[in-house]
Simulated assay, not measured.
Amino acid sequence: MKQPKPPVNVHAAYHAHIYFDATTAVQAKALCDAIDTNFDLKVGRFHEKPVGPHPCWSCQVIFEAEDFDGFIAWLEEQRNGLTIFVHGLTGNNLKDHTDYAYWLGEEKQLNLSMFL
């Protein structure tokens, strides 16, 4: 199995998408609530269906380069088996979701057709 490349801080802004399903929704909600409590970051809606290119249910967190190191380290420690997709925000959606894509946990196949 291919090891996902770990996140690196090379962009001004990022999204982290916390992936979950019906069996891990309570765990993901608790993680999102903990993010909201512990960080001054924008935590998005809790989508209980696939949205955009994401193959799983998800919740998006928006953060900036200055938050990257502390937030990513905290996420890795706190994710407890959840998969988290992290990507840079450069204005090029295809590159953001491919070249600038990083994973905490199992890499998933994204639906990139909307960006082609």
Results as ranks from 00 to 15, higher is better:
H47T: 09
F20M: 10
V43H: 03
V8S: 08
A34F: 00
D21S: 08
P50N: 07
P53L: 06
Y19E: 06
G52D: 08
G52K: 03
D67K: 12
N80G: 08
L75A: 07
S58L: 05
A22S: 12
E77P: 01
G88P: 01
I35L: 13
D40W: 02
T24R: 05
V26W: 01
T24S: 15
H15Y: 08
G70P: 02
G44L: 04
H87S: 06
N9S: 15
A16G: 02
A22H: 04
T83C: 04
E77Y: 08
T37Q: 10
A25K: 13
N9L: 07
G91Y: 04
N80V: 11
D40A: 13
F46D: 00
N38F: 12
I84A: 05
D33V: 11
N38G: 05
C56M: 14
D33L: 12
A28Y: 00
G52R: 11
R79L: 10
W57T: 07
Q27M: 10
K49C: 10
K29L: 06
T37P: 00
C56W: 02
I72Y: 03
A73F: 00
H87Q: 10
F71S: 01
F71K: 00
F46Q: 03
N38H: 13
T83P: 01
Q27D: 05
E48F: 03
D33G: 09
D33K: 11
L41Y: 05
H17F: 04
I35D: 02
P50V: 14
E76H: 10
C32F: 05
K49V: 14
L89G: 03
E77W: 03
G81C: 12
H15V: 03
P6C: 15
H54Y: 00
G52A: 07
E76G: 14
R79Y: 03
A25F: 01
K42R: 07
V10C: 08
V43W: 01
A65C: 06
F20Y: 11
G70V: 15
P7E: 06
K29D: 11
A30Q: 15
W74K: 06
F71N: 10
F39W: 13
I18N: 02
F39A: 06
V61E: 07
G70R: 14
F68T: 12
V61F: 02
E77L: 12
T90M: 10
L41A: 06
K42E: 10
D36K: 02
F46L: 07
N38R: 05
Q60R: 13
P55R: 05
P7W: 07
F71L: 15
I35S: 06
A34Q: 11
F39N: 04
V86K: 04
K29G: 11
F71V: 14
A73R: 09
A73N: 09
T24A: 07
I18W: 01
T83K: 00
P53G: 15
T90Y: 06
P50G: 12
W57L: 00
A16V: 11
P50A: 12
G52H: 05
K5S: 15
Y14C: 11
P6V: 15
R45M: 11
